[in-house]
Design a binder for these strands. Sequence first.
DNA 1: CAGGGTGCCTGACAAAAGTCAGGCAATATC
DNA 2: GATATTGCCTGACTTTTGTCAGGCACCCTG
Lengths: 291, 291
Amino acid sequence: MTTNAIARTRRFHRAVTSEVGALDSSFLGRGRPLGPARVLHAIGNGLSDVAEIRAHLKLDSGLMSRLLRGLEDEGLVTVTASESDARRRSACLTPAGKAEFAEYEALSDQQASAILSRHPHPEALLQAMDLVATALGFDRTAIQPVPVSDPRAQACLATYYGELARRFPAGFDVSLSADPEARDMEPPRGAFLLAVLDGMAIGCAGLKGTDKGYAEVKRVWVAPSARRMGLAGFLMRAIEDEARALGIATLRLDTNSALPEAVGFYRRSGWTEIPRFNDDPYPDVFFEKHL
Amino acid sequence: MTTNAIARTRRFHRAVTSEVGALDSSFLGRGRPLGPARVLHAIGNGLSDVAEIRAHLKLDSGLMSRLLRGLEDEGLVTVTASESDARRRSACLTPAGKAEFAEYEALSDQQASAILSRHPHPEALLQAMDLVATALGFDRTAIQPVPVSDPRAQACLATYYGELARRFPAGFDVSLSADPEARDMEPPRGAFLLAVLDGMAIGCAGLKGTDKGYAEVKRVWVAPSARRMGLAGFLMRAIEDEARALGIATLRLDTNSALPEAVGFYRRSGWTEIPRFNDDPYPDVFFEKHL
DNA sequence: CAGGGTGCCTGACAAAAGTCAGGCAATATC
DNA sequence: GATATTGCCTGACTTTTGTCAGGCACCCTG
């Protein structure tokens, strides 16, 4: 590691730390201390179980209790006993709370938009921010099953198709390909997994159930910002676990020699090349793996 | 501004904010509260004037006074009256303070190095961090005169020469070019300006005095992360101000048609193309400007 | 239904950070 | 040389955040 590289990294930290002061302005800009603002933000983002919020924000139980009380006194949240377990409590925004949350969101959006709009090349800046964010937090990546209809899943697939269209010599039109029915990629026939980091999907993989004695792995994609970090391996291991849990013993997949990094990855990770097993126009390489 | 772009920017903020928690671990990792640690850090980085530190850290005068007293009690700093103005005070690290500061530096270096070393492509990550840091803080850019021997100036020049070597069809060897004597680019004959952001040089420009009735503008360079943001314009205006202050009425410069963005920039900003005025082997376009 | 565990609340503190009014000495201004 | 200003200090606060022990209601287990 050169001294220069460390100096540049630390310069980045300095820049970002002072910018986080400005970011806090979107947290502090409404005359509320950081603690209550963070709790409000967490609730607004869908966390309701008090214990979950506490774990997420790493707050002491006593402090959490008082912060919630404060928000209740302001009329922003209501706290009720959870239905399934009356010891647990569940927080939820009142209409006033929702309005207040929306104001915080607007502040954050404004700030994000300000940064982007004063830059001469926003797309390059976004790509750089994605790369940095993924590098900083990669360990926090969570792999979770979602319905294919989840908007984040759809966004991944759209990017994936766009990339195939650019990389296949003849382009790519998903409607000509054997597009799996959504319910083939949902339990109990299959699964669709999303790799999520800081709320953004950075990869996906589908498991498509068939009636032919095997399941197919489809739509394995990793965001450019997360490549070469081993995410495909995590996704494939998770897909194999899903398959085992569904009682599937054989997996197949197809890919294209225009994607050499994918072909190499499957070769390296225990897949065996087999003859063509479908008549999809796009793939030209076929693999199988027994679990 | 698309919604997606804002979401990506905000995701970056989230990622970086939680990483700043980790950064604070390098500030808090030595059992000292944030306040005193920040003051120690500021003094270690060369700030000594108490009022300057206060302005930089945005601290109340009372709080600042107490923090300094705490560091004095720990034996880490000594505070003395300033020589020029006995109302002002000046803080300076004791040997123990220097050792403590070095420990903080080591923690920060370790953290920077950890981020880089776990990434598959550190140079790409560094470039992304540079781009983001420059975008976030561009308004804070300071243009300051330095001796050409300043290590930051030398680093800029080395990068500049490297870039010329890549872009000139026949390469670039500074020893074959008319490399100005250092003292031609220092007062009273000339100047060398550095654009500094968060402690890192992101651009430079030299003013080389001659005995021929004009001064030359040399070594105008902007870091890749800061291009297209108008920095060259700021630098040139500052160079012109320096020239006027030195009583110089005519500026000349040479450049190369392999650098079309530079040629275009000079054409747009009031320079007149003139015939070749030197026998340097590299340039093929020549400009003049009267102040 | 007794006993142990869990989730949240309360009270009592303590540390850290921030605020404000006044005070003192040095300096600038007229 | 009187007067105002500046830079820092001190004391006396408040707010925010964090910590800890105990308590109560609820849940699970046998």
